[in-house]
């Protein structure tokens, strides 16, 4: 019985666990260094004026207001393209499409689309949206060169294609997680397929779809490469806004045919094209901080949605 008191020493296990702890620590330190540097250097310049003002004096003074506005405008229009298309594609794939060679090709294509380098999307946008679709619209409507040039509309459309896989995959997951028994119950009560999707499947999948949408926004807001030649401007004196008038009553609207400033692109030009790097450096850090805070907030919202979604599902 003395043997029972001799404890086993799991040496390999101890080494392994501590190695993982060490690597984890390295990871956290790198993240903290990165964020810390940006927060320390950038927070000094943060103010209401910085967030709302235009850049002045060759970008050595002023704020980043137009860049923030442009980012919001572009991602907003992007969502108008990406979410309906993505959600309906996912509904088709998950609820209607049978497992055939054709639908497998579609599924594989979606996954491959997610792996295409983002600069390729930019070239695609230039070739397809601007030179093909835009120029043809101009020809048909005889609008001269209104649509056939880099503009907010085409940047949004291109980013929509870029984030489409995110929307489709997260919607597919959400649809898949709706239990089959609930569909059975609905069919058993004499519901048609569309009634079942509309009243039973979609309400339960909604938080998952919303999560995908938010992740798509944060991805789109952080991209630089695809919009390089799609209308992202170095500097614009005016916001891409037009007054939409019905009679005497006018409301300002986003003008999708204008060029725009973009937060991620703004950081890029501050870093590479500045005439006075010492003076633009704080602005550059400030812009980075704003961009990170923006995407971070969006991601946190997405995580909270997913958490709530899991809790609801856990009760079933």
């Amino acid at each position: 019985m003395e043997q029972l008191k001799q404890k086993h020493k799991d040496v390999q296990g101890i080494i392994f666990i501590n190695l993982i702890r060490l690597l984890f620590l390295v990871l956290v330190i790198i993240l903290l260094l990165l964020l810390g540097k940006i927060v320390v250097e950038g927070s000094g310049i943060l103010s209401l004026e910085f967030v709302f003002d235009s850049p002045r004096n060759n970008m050595t003074k002023g704020g980043i207001g137009p860049a923030i506005f442009g980012t919001i405008a572009v991602t907003f229009i992007m969502i108008l393209f990406a979410v309906p298309l993505g959600v309906f594609s996912a509904i088709y794939l998950n609820e209607y499409a049978k497992d055939t060679f054709f639908t497998r090709v579609i599924r594989t294509s979606i996954n491959n689309l997610a792996g295409v380098p983002s600069i390729v999307f930019g070239l695609f946008g230039l070739g397809f949206f601007i030179l093909f679709i835009g120029r043809n619209i101009d020809d048909v409507l005889e609008t001269g060169l209104l649509f056939g040039q880099p503009a907010l509309l085409w940047a949004s459309a291109t980013l929509a294609v870029l984030v489409l896989p995110i929307v489709i995959v997260s919607t597919l997951e959400a649809l898949n997680s709706v239990p089959k028994t609930h569909r059975d119950a609905s069919y058993g009560l004499g519901a048609t397929k569309w009634q079942t999707i509309k009243h039973v499947v979609l309400p339960q999948a909604r938080p998952g779809i919303l999560t995908g949408t938010i992740l798509a926004i944060s991805r789109g807001a952080g991209e630089t490469a695809p919009i390089l030649f799609l209308g992202a401007a170095f500097f614009l004196p005016n916001l891409p806004v037009v007054d939409l008038c019905i009679g005497d009553y006018c409301i300002p609207m986003i003008n999708p045919t204008e060029q725009f400033m973009y937060l991620a692109y703004h950081i890029f030009i501050l870093a590479t094209q500045s005439s006075n790097p010492t003076k633009t450096l704080p602005i550059q850090y400030g812009s980075t901080l704003v961009l990170i805070a923006l995407t971070f907030l969006l991601n946190i919202t997405a995580i909270l949605f997913r958490y709530r979604f899991r809790k609801i599902l856990g009760r079933l």
Partner: peptide, 15 residues
């Protein structure tokens, strides 16, 4: 299916 109701093994109430 409207004329023939069905009750399943495990309760499948909608949330």
């Amino acid at each position: 299916r409207k004329r023939i109701g069905m009750v399943f093994q495990k309760s499948n109430l909608f949330p």
